[in-house]
Design a protein around this nucleic acid. Structure first.
Length: 199
DNA sequence: GCGGGGATTAACT
DNA sequence: GTTAATCCCCGCG
């Protein structure tokens, strides 16, 4: 597949901003199989996590709107990029209408355009931002631009979608157990996949 | 201001 | 399994 025709097609398949104006669980599931496009690179989303409003003790919205997180309290369809552990940029998409705080963390991508043909290159939330060149300069961007958007790509049957607890949020008590992580079953680019036993 | 801690990753033992 | 890297956010005083 050549990069330019693929990008041209992706632009015609861009999802409308109303796509994001639903709850983070619905959006997190619907994003699976969609393409995330950044500049001349793109990957297929294969793993997401939903983060809810202040009642979700794992969500950055739990402190209310602050200088960093106020974007989560606005209308959906906007990026939220932050630095994690002082090392990695993590890419999220804000969901819902204004005053319905929530977001979806993109946790893994399969290479599609402009990336090495290696299932590991987008396996993990810190790795995929590095692969696509996403940084905090991409924070608070409306996802209707030509160089940063989501497009419909492949349809994922509901039976291929798995759900389980989110990763790295054990501090959140009860909220940590909720099945708010979604991934495409058996996909090689999913992070923390259970290791398959050798024959 | 200060101090604690984190939506991760790779490189150790 | 354990740990370093590395920085900024947030609550509190």
């Amino acid at each position: 597949m050549e990069a330019v025709p693929a990008l041209a097609r992706l632009r015609t398949q861009r999802v409308p901003l109303r796509f994001y104006r639903r709850d983070p669980v619905t959006v997190g599931r619907a994003l699976l199989g969609c393409a995330l496009v950044r500049g001349d690179r793109a990957g297929v989303i294969v793993e997401t996590e939903a983060y809810l409003g202040p009642e979700d003790k794992a969500s950055h919205s739990r402190f209310g709107p602050t200088a960093r997180t106020s974007v989560m309290f606005g209308a959906g369809g906007v990026s939220y990029v932050y630095l994690c552990y002082g090392v990695h940029e993590l890419f999220n998409i804000v969901t819902g209408d204004a005053d319905q705080p929530g977001a979806v963390l993109i946790r893994a991508l399969a290479p599609l355009v402009g990336l090495p043909d290696d299932p590991g290159v987008g396996r993990g939330p810190g790795k995929l931002t590095r692969a696509l060149g996403i940084t905090r300069a991409d924070d608070r961007q409306i996802l209707d631009r030509d160089d940063l958007f989501v497009a419909r790509w492949e349809r994922v049957a509901p039976t291929r979608i798995a759900a389980g607890p989110r990763v790295g949020v054990d501090y959140a008590g009860r909220c940590a157990d909720r099945p708010l992580r979604f991934w495409i079953e058996d996909h090689p680019s999913v992070s923390k996949a259970p290791r398959r036993r050798e024959a």
